[in-house]
Design a binder for these strands. Structure first.
Lengths: 99, 99
DNA sequence: TTGGTATATCGGGAATTATCGATATATCTT
DNA sequence: AAGATATATCGATAATTCCCGATATACCAA
């Protein structure tokens, strides 16, 4: 876990918003109900909700994933992203104890 | 507490290093022993140890202070900086619970 | 195979950050 | 008052980030 990379990923309003939305997928992405939420939420849903371009959202999700904060699963044409809660727990502990 | 500002302040190797040094002032800044550590460590000591210019360090300390992570106390010609542990505890909790 | 949909990657312009040297300000000493 | 010391602020350049449109890639459907 590269601390600087993690904090950079968190240094953006839109990315923080996305992470927050992903805490409650069924609440924030009801359009995806028919797919279920086990793998997370697909890029397109996030893009529409964020109101940024597809390329920007794709890039943001990649950076969050590189930081370890989310994970992805490709299913057919879709890529689903979900939070990696262990990473948040680890980060919380890191800040509490080491930084 | 503006989350983005806090994470930006943490998104830099040198600033993380400074914060870490300030966890144990007496260990990392022994030259300052004769002044005591109650108000923290003065800018000059941090500057020498970091190996960056005085202006850069001053700016870094300001940004950490704007983020609420450290506080300062002017005493004579010196400005002492120390960690604001409550801010770290709050940040840890924020990451654990809200972000 | 042809086309349609979802996502990723590339290239770029504007905005922000990193870091410096120079200068200003505040305080201390004499 | 005059110089010395510590810190803050200013101005500048290089590097990075933000966010876009265009294009490439992967998969699906007919």
């Amino acid at each position: 876990m590269d601390h600087v990379e993690v904090f950079k990923a968190l240094s953006n309003k839109s990315r923080l918003q996305i992470l927050n939305w992903l805490k409650e997928p069924q609440l924030n992405f009801p359009e995806q109900a028919y797919n279920g939420y086990e793998h997370g939420v697909c890029v397109g849903q996030i893009q529409v909700k964020a109101g940024l371009t597809q390329s920007t959202i794709s890039e943001y999700l990649s950076s969050l994933q590189r930081a370890g904060l989310i994970s992805s699963k490709r299913v057919g044409q879709w890529t689903y992203y979900k939070r990696n809660e262990e990473a948040f727990a680890a980060l919380s502990k890191l800040i509490e104890q080491e930084i």
